[in-house]
Design a protein around this nucleic acid. Sequence first.
DNA 1: AATGCGGGGGT
DNA 2: ACCCCAGCATT
Length: 358
Amino acid sequence: MQQSAFTKKLMHWNEVDNNRPMPWKGETDPYKIWLSEIILQQTQVKQGWGYYERFISNFPTVQDLAAAKDEAVFKLWEGLGYYNRCKNLLTSARFITKELNGKFPNTYDDIVGLKGVGPYTAAAIASFAFNLPYAVVDGNVFRVLARVFGIDTAIDSTKGKQQFTKLANKVLDTNQPGIYNQAIMDFGATMCKPFAPQCHICPLQSTCVGYQKGSVNLLPIKEKVLTKKSRWLYYFVIECGGKTLVHKRTANDIWQSLYEFYVLEANEQQDWTKTQVQQWFQQQLNVSDVALISVSPLQKQQLTHQLIKGQFISVKIDAIPKTLAHYEWVNNSDIHTLAFPKFINQYLETPTAQGQLF
DNA sequence: AATGCGGGGGT
DNA sequence: ACCCCAGCATT
């Protein structure tokens, strides 16, 4: 098949000007490629780099990952966000190990059937590990193609996804799909950047429709608007006999599979005086003897769709109250083996943020 | 088709 | 403040 001018120029740039090292570059082990791609979903290379190295070091093979304890894997993922990626990673590692005898699937259809693997990740694995001709379509590819070909179809619409996927596969270098896919993403990340693209030294300048029309900084188009909401989470860090009360989040909500302390969610800000804490414990847990240790200052955490605000109220009690469904008492020395959201780790790791002591 | 999921980094 | 990042699952 004849290559487009775009493809030729991109591949030439890749040969002479692309110097972007990454720990998984040139890797051919499908397990390692898969792991790197899951880590990199909606995550910048710089942020995922260290996580990849720690995962490979701890779990060199898919069998090692499949055999690991859930908590250990989540602890390693802690801080990376989008925790369902980690849950699906474990599900797929165990599926490959048990159902496929450890043999990683080697067709696009079988790869895309894995939990946590969608069109982008399947194309990446298929091309990098098996040299199959599937074009990746990620944020970089949307941006590069929208600008170079001057396409103003919204990339977050069904029509846009179809249009860009079709074009991406049309300009794919089918002789070396892996190298091409790596090249277009590197090009998007280093030259055709979201902000301050390097048009003045770009080898595609003369054929770039966006550059000719002066619309580079308007592309790509998105049509959906982000809505945000505020939540107040009040955490009671309850200690009793060297143990602390924790809960694994399971609800259809943020931080699924991570741990938290006893939580009270409110629709608005609340004050926590010593009297109010004592009243709350009496009403909620039927505990009357509460030693209030500290109340933290107001803490905030900005998520993509939510602004989390809240405080940490640390107390000690003498006797374990009535059984609390879905909560468990964990030895204080074991708390560090559990994965917590950043909102909670901020509190745990910053003693000075404990606030008012009682 | 629409919604929601984290945390880091840039402007 | 707002946007983006090697997207995906769910409804």
